[in-house]
Nucleic acid binder design. Structure first.
Length: 277
DNA sequence: CGGGACGCCTGTGAGC
DNA sequence: TGCTCACAGGCGTCCC
């Protein structure tokens, strides 16, 4: 579920409420992808700082006077979502695997598939956080990621451009929905080898990726099943998807039937007429 | 080293 | 109705 826009939506929805919030307790449910990496009690008394996002990871600094610095690195995996609950929250359900109880409310992680994770790290640039972020490419909105820089990075990759976007080492943020949508917007066939993309087309791809992610962010992300921000607000981008999940339906631009293929074990949707090799 | 498959989990919807 | 199968927003790890 959560690709860059959804994670950023979540970050914004918890940043103000949790900045300055004091941790009272942390309750764990079923195991997530990785262990927390510290004793839950070690977090009590720490105070939330400004949240950051890197790729699809969220970083929540938790400071404490006289103690080592640290914070929590969150990843929502495929089915994770966060909810900020008021005083006296409902008891956790079977898929609520972590409650961060603070004096400003309880931040609850809901994640049926448990591909998500919450990991304590003393900082972003030290283990374990650093290892998890090590292979991430540049942020899509980083001004240093110029059309030329993207083109140069794509030229080093022989895999299909769709797979390269998903891999996240050339540029982070696009998951299956937005990779498909950005390629449609750029008029690029998803199976085209990345190293065969011309400079002008790389420029179009970068612009399309930014426009797609930016639009999704404005609309609160995509809610396919049950994604919402920490206040329960659903996203609206999914209704605007031009190709994702629309196999067999007419392309919104040319009317040709949208196709579904499989690349790297993932579904890819595209318009065979609008997207050229 | 790059690229692709696998595995981690649970839920849902389609088809028989 | 009930079963089985394919598939679902991600990504670290393993093998070729």
């Amino acid at each position: 579920m959560p690709e860059l826009p959804e994670v950023e939506v979540v970050r914004r929805s918890i940043d103000v409420p949790l900045r300055g919030a004091r941790v009272l307790a942390l309750r764990l449910g079923k195991p997530l992808r990785w262990p927390l990496g510290c004793a839950p009690a070690d977090l009590a008394g720490r105070v939330g700082g400004p949240g950051q996002r890197r790729g699809k990871y969220l970083w929540m600094p938790l400071a404490a006077d006289g103690r080592e610095p640290g914070g929590l690195l969150w990843h929502l995996g495929m089915s994770g979502s966060l909810a900020l609950l008021g005083a006296g929250p409902a008891p956790p359900g079977p898929h609520d695997h972590l409650d961060l109880v603070t004096d400003r409310g309880t931040l609850r992680l809901h994640d049926p598939r448990r591909f998500g994770a919450v990991v304590f790290s003393r900082g972003l640039d030290v283990a374990p956080a650093a290892a998890l972020l090590a292979r991430l490419g540049p942020e899509p909105f980083d001004p240093a990621l110029t059309p030329l820089a993207l083109h140069a990075a794509l030229r080093r990759r022989r895999a299909a451009v769709k797979s390269v976007l998903l891999a996240g080492d050339v540029v982070v943020g696009a998951g299956n929905i937005y990779a498909c949508e950005a390629l449609f917007a750029a008029g690029i066939h998803p199976a085209l080898r990345a190293d065969r993309i011309s400079r002008p087309r790389a420029a179009r791809l970068l612009a399309a990726l930014r426009a797609t992610l930016g639009r999704a962010l404005e609309l609160g992300g995509s809610t396919l099943r049950d994604f919402s921000d920490a206040h329960g607000a659903a996203g609206a981008y999914q209704a605007q998807a031009a190709v994702y999940g629309r196999a067999g339906q007419p392309c919104l631009r040319c009317g040709a039937a949208v196709r579904r293929i499989v690349q790297g074990q993932r579904s890819t949707f595209f318009c065979p007429a609008c997207q050229k090799r």
